[in-house]
Design a protein around this nucleic acid. Structure first.
Length: 822
RNA sequence: GCGGGUGUGGCGGAAUUGGCAGACGCGCAGGAUUUAGGUUCCUGUGUCCUCGGACGUGAGGGUUCAAGUCCCUCCACCCGCACCA
């Protein structure tokens, strides 16, 4: 029999048999009118169309599909959409390399990925596909931009921005990783440019505070990263008069209690204030030279905290508002121009950076909090709490009391107040590239920034033909004169379009709403559909987006809430971060020579075996090391399960109630435990439970109740349904072999009979001094006294006690007895 | 430097509230079937052992009748942030 069966579990044949049938039946269509099932929204992060799908996609989508298909089996109408995040630099760069139109290149890749995705058989609703590079999509990026523009949430300002010399475009703070461009690893430099921003800082508090909604539903790690990224700190703003300057300068500090310890004052070298203070002083030349040096320092060097402190004394003095002391003003690059006010009071005794600076330039160190050794001697600033000294009215107070007191003092004198600061900066969205959403603004010499009227949207991208897409620091769109030159919508005079395009993170900040009605042409999304489906019940994607994409999406959601378009404030109720697929411990890459091609793996083992391998490899959050797993083993198991279906000889509908009780108990327990495992993301465990059921069924057929017993059919059908979450082709073919019509995906999760979960007998472990000496089969309802008696009289126990008396007997009926000898 | 996480057989990993450590699988070994085996099926597989047992979840200590699980100290690896005043 072996020979025929090997031929019969023919992966290729099974795949090509069911794919067209599923296409026809479309079992995962979520928008069928009159569908009464309760709803769930399962969302996978949409792919970027750079070539075909790879191993990472295979893992992520296999995991998301387990959840989506499980909820379908549980009777939900599951919205499980897919689309393409199709704008962006890589497509454009590739297009430049190949001399192709980025549009053609992108759509060709999308078609290829779409075909692969279909074969991969995820439970996507193919009626809802969207591409962010379609005008019908980015139309609404522009619409949303204008909504924000009207509310002052989109604005233009000049500032020193992160610049990637390789990509020849600006980058958001979030796209600079360790001083390098996140995309190409080129060291990032600074450039002064006028750019568009979204005012995400207005939402800093809400982004932080609303995270309480996400506790226990998002990975703690992601919440922590977001908290750190927003970086809220509470302190005080204190005003210092600068000699020879009319207006005082405000500094931000989290330690206003150490104000009496301020021995010098530092302004950010690259701030306007520094230039102003240096102007006309004897230090001006030295300052100018220093500033040049600072500008030459790459972001990467600047981030090196081991670097020695540098700076220039500006030959000016600030007056400490509490004691009138005259302290020198320095300019240094260790103070950041764009955090707080760009100026600080330096308290070297209690801040390490200030101490390092003080030691470098021989500035005085004054202890105002007694907390250990003298920092001037040790070189280590003390940040701990302790009684204040040398601090006038603060003397003797601890930190909390001193802060409270000094704030009162400052308030009385009108020279200081409580203040909150954030690490988070506004989101820079302008990009000097072609393949993105045009910013819907027209620049007019007379009227300034004029929004494109809503009815003129979308502002579509011109053809790339004839345009030089090579990065040169300005947007290629500016060279499309026919496109760029327009009349001002306001005054009718000559004007030009804004030639920059939007950061592609704008596209992905709201795409989950667009899926609800991807072809709607009157609004970005259907508000009523949003009431029905949103927020997303389960989001699945890589931890690489822990900050960027998730923070931006949360921000957009809150803006939409304020616009009255949605009635929730957080878009993603639960988040699962899947791990990566690696090879021999490191990320796969062509240059490392450890790249595994998904298409090769699929050809060799089949879709189901690859999906099963991904799911069974371990917890979904962990990386899958392809060197450690066995797709061949997965295929072997699938064939084994599949053969089970062929061995069943009872008819469909056979009454399982009269079947073998032993096997039925195994079946119901496996179904029950697999369901619990899926719901708690332990998909690998759910697979293990399915395997156990297959093993038990095999045994029942070969050496137990036999293939005709209805319990065997019940077990095999349960296997097919459980397997349908992971291995849809095999499961469907099993279902057919068991005499059912498609689709197994809609068969419904097997009902668990609670009575069959109750064991007839339980193995009770009898320990003596914590060591197992005997196992007894007992009834689950056994009384403590009876169990104690049984345990104490067991021969093995008497032997282990070896005449010693009994001190205590711990009884945990019915599973355990521990006898403590005297 | 600051913050967080993880350490369980040869390997990937299991293990409600502290209650049989190693489920399930890979690999390996042996056997059966086979002309053959990158097939299928069965059996075994933590370590040591004087075959009664002893030891065993990164190391050391503690709490407990009982610790992979709780507490303390340490080690290793991984991730995030990195002059944010």
């Amino acid at each position: 029999m072996a020979d025929e069966d090997i031929e019969t579990y023919d992966v290729e044949a099974i795949q090509s048999r069911w794919l067209p049938i599923w296409d026809d039946l479309a079992p995962f269509r979520s928008g069928v009118p009159g569908d009464e099932r309760p709803t769930k929204y399962v969302l996978d992060m949409f792919p970027y169309p750079s070539g075909d799908l790879h191993m990472g996609h295979a893992e992520a989508y296999a995991l998301g599909d387990v959840i989506a298909r499980y909820w379908v089996q549980q009777g939900f109408n599951v919205l499980h959409p897919i689309g393409w995040d199709a704008f962006g630099l890589p497509a454009e760069n590739a297009a430049i390399r190949n001399g192709e139109d980025p549009r053609a290149w992108t759509y060709a890749n999308i078609e290829q990925q779409k075909a692969s995705m279909r074969r991969y058989a995820c439970s996507f609703d193919w009626d809802r596909v969207l591409n962010t590079c379609d005008p019908e999509y980015y139309h609404w990026n522009q619409w949303l931009f204008l909504q924000m523009f009207q509310r002052g949430l989109a604005y233009r300002k000049a500032s020193n921005v992160n610049w990637c010399p390789n990509c020849q475009t600006v980058l958001a703070n979030e796209q600079v990783v360790a001083g390098e461009c996140e995309r190409c690893d080129t060291p990032v430099t600074k450039k002064k440019l006028t750019q568009w921003y979204f005012k995400i800082t207005d939402y800093a508090d809400r982004l932080l505070d609303d995270m309480t909604q996400l506790e226990d539903a998002w990975p703690e790690k992601v919440l922590l990263m977001q908290r750190n990224w927003i970086g809220r700190s509470t302190g005080a703003e204190v005003q210092f008069v600068i000699e020879g300057r009319d207006d005082p300068v405000t500094v931000y500090t989290t330690r206003p209690d150490t104000l009496y310890g301020a021995t010098f004052f530092v302004v950010a070298a690259d701030s306007d204030l520094a230039a102003e203070l240096a102007a006309g002083t004897p230090a001006e030349a030295e300052f100018t030279e220093y500033l040049e040096q600072v500008k030459r320092t790459s972001e990467m060097d600047r981030l090196n905290s081991e670097r020695d402190k540098t700076g220039v004394f500006l030959q000016r003095y600030a007056i400490n508002p509490v004691n009138g002391e005259r302290i020198p003003v320095w300019a240094s690059d260790y103070v950041l121009a764009d955090y707080g006010t760009g100026a600080i009071m330096a308290v070297p005794a209690h801040d390490q950076r200030d101490l390092d600076f003080a030691r470098a330039f021989d500035l005085p160190v004054r202890v105002v909090v007694e907390a250990g050794e003298d920092p001037a001697v040790t070189g280590v600033a003390t940040a701990d709490d302790g009684p204040h000294v040398n601090s006038g009215p603060l003397d003797g107070l601890d930190k909390a009391a001193a802060i409270e007191r000094i704030l009162e003092v400052l308030a009385e004198r009108g020279t200081g107040t409580v203040a909150v600061n954030y690490r988070l900066r506004d989101w820079l969205i302008s990009r000097q590239r072609f393949w993105g959403t045009p910013i819907p603004i027209v620049h007019c010499d007379i009227c300034g920034e004029v929004p494109v009227p809503m009815e003129q949207l979308p502002v579509t991208l011109p053809s790339a033909e004839g345009l030089d897409l090579k990065p040169k620091g300005t947007s290629p769109l500016g060279a499309a004169t026919e496109w760029a030159n327009v009349v001002c919508p306001k005054c009718g005079g000559p004007a030009t379009r804004d030639a920059d395009t939007m950061d592609t993170f704008v596209d992905s900040s709201w795409y989950y709403l667009r899926y609800l009605d991807p072809h709607l042409d009157t609004a970005p999304f259907d508000v009523d559909q949003a009431k029905r489906w949103m927020p997303v019940d389960q989001y699945v994607g890589g931890v690489t987006h822990a900050i960027l994409h998730l923070l931006y999406s949360r921000f957009f959601t809150k803006v939409l809430y304020d616009l009255g378009m949605v009635d929730f404030t957080e878009p993603f109720t639960r988040l699962l971060n899947q791990g990566m697929v690696v090879m021999n411990g490191s990320a796969m890459s062509k240059s490392r020579g450890n790249l595994v091609r998904l298409s090769d793996e699929l050809a060799e083992h089949g879709v189901d075996a690859i999906r099963l391998t991904m799911v069974f490899a371990g917890p979904p959050e962990d990386d899958v090391d392809w060197a450690d797993v066995s797709p061949a083993g997965a295929k072997k198991f699938l064939a084994r399960a599949w053969r089970l279906a062929g061995d069943v000889t009872s008819e469909p509908g056979a009454d399982s109630a009269v079947g073998d009780v032993g096997l039925r108990k195994v079946t119901h327990k496996a179904v029950h435990e697999a369901g619990l495992a899926v719901e708690s993301y332990r998909f690998n465990v759910a697979v293990a439970k399915t395997m156990e059921l297959v093993n038990a069924s095999r045994k029942a057929i070969d050496s137990g109740c036999g293939p005709a017993d209805p319990a065997v059919r019940e077990a095999a059908e349960a296997v097919a349904i459980m397997l349908s979450l992971v291995a849809p082709y095999t499961a469907e073919d099993m279902w057919a072999r068991l005499g059912h019509e498609p689709c197994v995906a809609l068969a419904g999760w097997p009902q668990v009979d609670p009575e069959l979960l109750v064991e007839d007998s339980v193995t009770c472990v009898i320990q003596v001094a914590g060591k197992v000496r005997e196992r007894l089969e007992v009834s689950p309802g056994i009384a403590e006294d009876e169990l104690r008696e049984l345990a104490l009289t067991a021969p093995a126990v008497i032997k282990a006690l070896d005449g010693a008396g009994v001190r205590t007997v711990i009884v945990r009926a019915p599973k355990l007895v521990n006898i403590v000898p005297a």
